[in-house]
């Protein structure tokens, strides 16, 4: 299979056979199996997960390594590049849908289920929770499971984190400009700043969680408030972590001078991803912390 476009007719690059995908699938299987065994208290679980983690790392390095080599040897032209961009866009779209599910849950409990529970007596002349009343939000429910907690305020750490993440969005764009007009200093500096901001965001987030658990009595088990709070911010935090790691990789590749103004899909892909977690955070700040 010839990998280089013959002059004249454009040739789309079709990679050689590779074992990385199937290996990764095997790893995911082990991971799932291990996790299932673990949460059901079967001993070997963690070992499976460990093996899976190792495999996954191996694949990540091998697979991305191959891709980087290909792009270094200019196996890709604009045609392939366009595929990657489209692909990244639709991948991010699916991520949006994933977060939509959790936001949907948040709105549902705030607008429908908790108000219903509070108004059982009025609407049916019968209630299952005689001494249950109070605000419809924040709420941890009516049953024996309901617990005392203080909701997380918006204007402390969260506000600070908003500032951090927004400015990180700016710096990464600034770095991109640098790349576009071959200003290496600006590129490196911009990326370095972005990564710094990203990780400090995570630092504060971790601190906030500790604060929630140790002082506010706000835990994953604190009714629907705790559940939606931690699942939404948690998944976001997880995505920020991924984003920060990807940024770091890109940073190293910039130091190695992998990119130029014309060819830097990897950089843009990561930048888009970063903006995406940015936007999600804004929604979180408004609907989880503030309102």
């Amino acid at each position: 299979m010839s990998t280089h476009s013959a002059p004249g007719t454009p040739h789309y690059y079709v990679p050689r056979p590779t074992h990385y995908p199937v290996t990764l699938s095997g790893a995911l299987f082990l991971l799932a199996l291990g996790f299932i065994l673990k949460i059901n208290a079967y001993a070997p679980g963690p070992w499976f997960m460990l093996a899976a983690a190792a495999l996954i790392l191996y694949v990540l390095f091998g697979w991305f390594g191959a891709i980087i080599r290909e792009s270094a040897t200019r196996a890709y032209g604009d045609w392939e590049d366009r595929s990657f961009r489209h692909g990244m866009v639709w991948f991010i779209a699916s991520e949006v849908a994933f977060f939509a599910a959790f936001f949907g849950a948040l709105f549902y409990v705030r607008i429908i289920s908790v108000p219903d529970l509070l108004s059982l007596l009025d609407s049916h002349g019968w209630t299952l929770y005689p001494e249950y009343q109070g605000l419809s939000w924040p709420q941890s429910g009516a049953g024996p499971k309901a617990m005392e907690f203080t909701p997380m305020g918006a204007w402390g750490i969260p506000a600070l984190n908003t500032a951090l993440l927004l400015s990180s969005g700016a710096t990464v764009t600034w770095a991109h400009w640098g790349l576009l007009r071959d200003n290496r200093r600006q590129l490196i500096l911009g990326l370095a700043l972005t990564i710094l901001l990203g990780f400090s965001f995570l630092g504060f987030q971790a601190w906030e969680y500790h604060h929630a658990y140790s002082e506010l009595g706000l835990t994953l088990g604190a009714g629907v408030y705790g559940a939606t709070f931690f699942m939404l911010t948690g998944f976001h935090g997880f995505h920020v972590t991924l984003g920060a790691i990807m940024l770091t990789v890109i940073f190293i590749r910039c130091l190695k001078g992998h990119f130029d103004a014309g060819n830097h899909f990897a950089f843009e892909g990561v930048a888009w991803y970063w903006h995406f977690v940015d936007v999600v955070w804004l929604l979180l700040f408004v609907f989880v912390y503030w309102l």
């Binding site: 219903d116 529970l117 059982l120 609407s123 049916h124 019968w126 209630t127 299952l128 009516a142 049953g143």
Partner: peptide, 10 residues
């Protein structure tokens, strides 16, 4: 009509 734990239906 569904009988839903923790809620009341009519």
């Amino acid at each position: 009509r569904d009988a839903i734990p923790g809620f009341i239906r009519e």
